[in-house]
Amino acid sequence: MSPRSASVNEELRRRSKERLLQAAVELVGERGFEATTLGDIADRAGSARGLVSYYFPGKRQLVQSAVHRLMHRTLEEALEREPRTEDGRERMARAIDAILGLARDRPVLMRQHMAGLLQAEGFVPCPEQRRLAELLRDTVARHGSRDVDSDYPMLRALLMGAVYAALVPGVPMPVPVLRAELFKRYRLDWELGVPPDTEGPGGRGDTDLSRFFATGTPTDQATGTPTDQATGTSADQETEHPTGTPTAPATDYATGTLTDRATDSPTDPTTDHATGTAPGRAPEVQP
């Protein structure tokens, strides 16, 4: 069989990462952070456990990236939905409603995300977060800010505070009350955006997240072989390493360590083929 082209291998790697992001969002939303293992995420994505460690340093980083993807794509969808508008007040209203809508519609996921930000490692910068920041900065600028560098962090803080207040166990504040306060601060009419008594796109009951994650099936133009959507591989290849090389499913490529997929616990270290020595320590895989 002829080898796949470099462009197809690159597409497979991209889609493999997309599946991991989508699986992380789905599982943490269903079970919570602690009850979701990296092995669970790999299984849901149809990927080898080693691919998770190749793309992400740990579970916390993977989940933060996945939630930031969901946030930035939700925000982007809200800002660009029909009828499209350049009006700064309407765009600010849509932005507020999009973020509060995530707290309302995906409370488990967003509660776990907020809790993760309060951990020792705190906020983990990533490309997904940067895209979210760009959209919010643009929203602030279009709303008429004269000092975006000061007003953007304030909007971010207010939105994070509102999400936190909506999700505090036992004493959550109603989303409409939080919306009213934010709308008052930014001098927005209640009818702008998506008022709580209306149903907007991607609102309650929308469980299909596939539109936010490009996980379709590419075809190798050189060989004409469709790749498998569940595994990212062609029919005669079991596992696709990010470099295009078939590998054992449970090898951690970042450390050369074999990992038990059932427990996410490292087994006896294997030899690091890059150095000819055993790795110094296993990767951190705790929740």
Rank of each mutant, 00 (worst) to 15 (best):
S16I: 02
D220N: 14
E77D: 15
A262M: 03
R31L: 09
G280K: 09
A48D: 08
S5V: 08
R81T: 15
G232W: 06
S16F: 02
G29K: 01
P287H: 01
F123C: 09
T275K: 00
L182N: 05
G88T: 03
A222G: 13
T247D: 12
D228K: 03
A98Q: 05
A214G: 08
P218H: 08
P201E: 13
G244D: 05
T74K: 14
V285G: 06
A66K: 03
P283I: 01
E76Y: 14
R49V: 12
A35T: 06
D40F: 02
V8A: 15
D252C: 13
A35M: 07
P107H: 01
G161M: 14
E34N: 01
A141R: 15
P83N: 03
G280L: 10
L182T: 06
F33W: 06
V25Y: 07
A66T: 01
L182G: 05
G276P: 01
N9E: 15
P83L: 04
Y164Q: 12
L70M: 15
G39N: 03
R261S: 12
D206A: 12
T74C: 07
T277A: 05
G88S: 04
A230N: 00
Y152K: 02
Q64F: 03
L188M: 04
M173T: 05
V194W: 13
D105L: 07
T231A: 02
D43A: 14
L75A: 13
R185I: 10
G244I: 11
A66G: 02
R146W: 14
A262S: 07
F183T: 12
A166M: 00
G116V: 00
K59P: 00
L258E: 10
R137W: 10
A248S: 15
A93C: 05
F183A: 15
L136V: 11
R137M: 11
L136R: 11
V124H: 10
V148Q: 11
L155S: 05
D206P: 03
R146C: 13
R156N: 06
G203N: 04
R211C: 08
T275H: 00
W190S: 10
Q229H: 12
M1H: 13
Q229I: 09
A157V: 09
V108H: 02
K184L: 08
S5A: 15
M110L: 14
L132T: 07
G101P: 06
G144P: 09
Q61V: 02
G202D: 07
R15D: 07
A95N: 09
M114F: 11
A165L: 13
R142S: 13
T245S: 09
V25E: 06
R49D: 10
L188Q: 03
L109Y: 03
T219G: 06
L70D: 01
D268K: 14
M154K: 10
E80Y: 11
E240Y: 06
A278V: 07
L100D: 08
E191Q: 13
P226H: 13
C126L: 05
G244W: 11
R31H: 10
T243K: 06
Q119S: 08
A162R: 01
L70T: 01
D268F: 12
R104F: 02
A166V: 00
